[in-house]
């Protein structure tokens, strides 16, 4: 259940592109054709699924405060979390290189479709963002980290697929000249992001609502009491 919830949350509610604007650069640059967009999207899912769990391990066993305690008690007080940027980006860069080599060796056809995009991915903010969000949201287990990585990857894939499809169609529309290309893409993305905001309520139903209701009632009651008190005061002043 936890996994399913996190999975849908990372695809729709916390969508990389629409909620946090991660990976916007390649999102704008590579979304002119659906076929290339699919290639890049698949590569992003792949790399996120590898790097997020890996960086989770790094964070858990090397970087966090007290994470080094497995080395012995004298290391328990070390806090290396200031190094996390450099560690994460180094992991990502090497992993991307490694993935490129492995894919080239074992699946030349996949390499031909993903190949040119893999180097681009090392500097895609969505990848580093995935690891940083994983760290700041304190995802508790490596399984959940994997779910989070795959989920955010799919979210990004959906976003770039959607915008690429729209941009293919928009060629036949009469866009104002000054908005053509970049401008209209920005505005469409904005509108799509507003659309994606409607997913926000998807996972907040159920338990939270029950908790919220009494609060609202309590507020209403408070306001009633305040009103009554004001009326009494007003009456008193009138009498005076």
């Amino acid at each position: 259940m936890e996994h399913i919830e996190l999975f849908f949350k990372s695809i729709f509610i916390d969508n990389m592109v629409f909620a946090t604007f991660l990976g916007m650069c390649s999102y704008l640059a590579v979304s002119k054709k659906v076929s290339t967009a699919v290639g890049l999207g698949a590569a992003v899912i792949f790399v996120l699924a590898v790097t997020v769990p890996l960086n989770w391990l790094l964070d858990q066993y090397i970087l966090q405060e007290g994470a080094l305690s497995w080395l012995g008690e004298e290391y328990a007080s070390y806090d290396l979390s200031f190094l996390s940027f450099i560690m994460f980006i180094a992991t990502i860069a090497t992993m991307v290189q490694l993935v490129e080599i492995i894919v080239e060796k074992f699946s030349p056809s996949l390499y031909n479709s993903l190949g040119i995009f893999l180097p681009l991915i090392a500097v895609n903010c969505a990848i580093l963002g995935g690891s940083l969000f994983m760290q700041s949201r304190e995802i508790p287990s490596i399984g959940l980290a994997l779910t989070y990585g795959v989920g955010s990857g799919i979210g990004w894939f959906l976003a770039i697929l959607a915008i690429a499809a729209i941009r293919e169609k928009i060629r036949y529309s009469a866009v104002p000249p000054a908005l053509r290309g970049l401008g209209i893409t920005f505005i469409i993305t904005g509108l799509m992001a507003i659309g994606f905001m409607s997913f926000g309520g998807m996972l907040t139903g159920g338990d939270e609502k029950k908790e919220e209701k009494p609060k609202v009632e309590a507020k209403v009651e408070k306001e009633k009491i305040k009103k009554e008190a004001k009326e009494i005061v007003a009456e008193n002043t009138n009498i005076n």
Binding site: F18, A19, T20, F21, I170, R171, V175, P176, P177, A178, L179, R180, G181, L182, G183, I184, T185, F186, I187, T189, G190, L191, A193, I194, M197
Partner: peptide
């Protein structure tokens, strides 16, 4: 204050800029 408006504001800035400087207008 919501995040989508940032995109739309940038879109409008691009629009204004390209209306002023016609050389920057792209093909579709």
């Amino acid at each position: 204050l919501l995040s989508p408006m940032a995109l739309i504001v940038v879109g409008i800035i691009i629009w204004v800029q390209r209306t002023k400087n016609k050389a920057l207008i792209e093909e579709n």
